[in-house]
Amino acid sequence: MNTQQTHQEDHTRRHLDAMCVNESAQAHPWYYNLKYMAVGIVFGIIFVKSEVISWFRIQEMFHLQSFHMYGIIGSAIMVGMLSIFLIKRFDIRTIHGEKVSIADKKFNKGQIYGGLLFGLGWGLTGACPGPLFAQIGIGATVVIITLLSAIAGTWVYGRFRDHLPH
């Protein structure tokens, strides 16, 4: 089996859930990844300072008692949408000169069933996956268990994926 073919199969497999497929064709040394860590750090600080990782803020959101979270998610989407529009419209390249490509998401029933299940978990833990990492960072060590449990949930999904309706 040649390398090209293996590469293709690997890519198809990662396409399975229409996530984690945005693979740059370029190969870089490992320390290039530090730039993503820098973005993560800014992101994590914002998460804490705007109280996105607050269990209380999430409950407020689902009780319609505060505009805060709606304002954050809404304005983030607006900025994201405008950015993607500009990138596509003016064909803005990456800093390494590569064309930006974003995979389309295909509809399947998993988005409904999985979405509802994640929603239940979000209301319960008051955290989506990102905030879990930041909560551990602020010293809420018990959230390590929540994170490990989320990893276990992901594994169980992978294990029983073929038996679930999609």
Binding site: D17, G121, I145
Partner: peptide
């Protein structure tokens, strides 16, 4: 709250193919 909630977050996001950030 801690264990079952976390499990739902991990299982649900992967089943849905993304979370608040990705979707």
């Amino acid at each position: 709250l801690i264990v079952f909630g976390g499990f739902l977050v991990g299982f649900g996001t992967r089943y849905a193919g993304g979370c608040t950030s990705g979707h």
